[in-house]
Design a protein around this nucleic acid. Sequence first.
RNA 1: GCAAGGAUGGCAGAGUGGUCAAAUGCACCAGACUGUAAAUCUGGCGUCGCGAGACUUCGGGGGUUCGAAUCCCUCUCCUUGCA
Length: 385
Amino acid sequence: MLFEQKSKKNKARTGIINTLHGGIITPAFFPDATYGAIKSLSFSEAHNAGVREIVTTTLHLEMTVGSEFIGNFGGLHKFLNWNRPILTDSGGFQIFSLIHRKMQKLGRITDAGVTFEDPRTGKFKILTPEISQIIQHNLGSDIRVVLDEPALRTTSIKYLKEANRRTVEWAKRSKEIFLKLNGLTESDFDNPRVKRPLLCAVIQGGNVENLRKENAKALIDIGFDIYGFGGGLPMKDEKSWKNELPKGLDPEMLAFLADLIPQDKIRYGLGMGTPDDLRSSIECGWDIFDTVLPTRNARHGYLYVNAGDGDAHFNNYSVMHIKKEIYKKDIYPINKDSRIKDLREISRAYLRYLFKIGENEALRLATMNNLEFYSQLMEKAGHHH
RNA sequence: GCAAGGAUGGCAGAGUGGUCAAAUGCACCAGACUGUAAAUCUGGCGUCGCGAGACUUCGGGGGUUCGAAUCCCUCUCCUUGCA
């Protein structure tokens, strides 16, 4: 992977990540198609909205269709009929959120792995670093993530250290089985001429700089293609990494970590972020991102629009809460500058109306709008094309 | 014309003497959402007030009672049986 710094002012950079299903131009945003579908949109519609790569989740696919079936089918790309890059998340975060969202013991973490209750069936399941890699191998994804242990910002130092140790051990085990599954040696892994899926490790350590640093170094020593910023902030009640910050991610921590990761490696912000979060992350050198924000918010009538447009304003963007009364008679188009005909021509009043009557079309239009917004955000940040 | 059952907040629909400004659902208004158990969740929703609180409400009118959406009388209207 070769990355080129865009300007001297900040550390933003552009580059191309080569995968088995084509190149990814960075910075890049991967929408979440957790269950193998971008909610309320077909893949061709998503592609029209600028989507070039997606994220799916190991665990969800395993618990629903099953990776063995998908493997026999001919792989996830064939199953989804999506021939562009797919990143599969390890499943660690999903279990983490199961454990932390409810006070009940829905899951248990040991050095071996995680046992958890399947929310759909109530049955207990086990996920280990090895199982996660095997599932991802069956799926045949282009970018694979190692199982890690995310931790809450408020977790004690003692526990953070333990979680970090496990994260490193699991990363090591993940790489071992990854090599084995792909019939590779360590030197194959480091040889750029060997075509193979990419492997991503996730840096943890809460909001403690030293622990983040320690964790990053240990993972870099093992050697991966991609280093992720893990732990995000979707951990409910954990709105900010620093108490004094109003909300959002900690730009200083992101800058600090980006500098620790070698130039030729890819930096992945997992579960990030708002358009403002993304902008500041790109500026300090992060390359790829995913979050449910644009798709979920779209379904809730929360549309991203250019700064100054809309009814709520942030640093570099604005938002239309399209269900608001003020749009009832708004004849203005959803986005006059859109590359998508419907978004250019359909009025805000009609979109609001579609939401009010509960039409699927509302979700479709809103999701296209938000995905197009995110994809253009990446283009602007990277000066693509 | 006789008999029976009804009339509750924008709608549907609980409540049958005090804890009722009145459950619940819908609608409406506002907010949240960051590696998706999310087309979800939270809050508001008689009037005035930032607030404690005050005031006016359960078809109309009258009455019983310390106290009524709830009991009695009467009027209006609706539904259903019998003529």
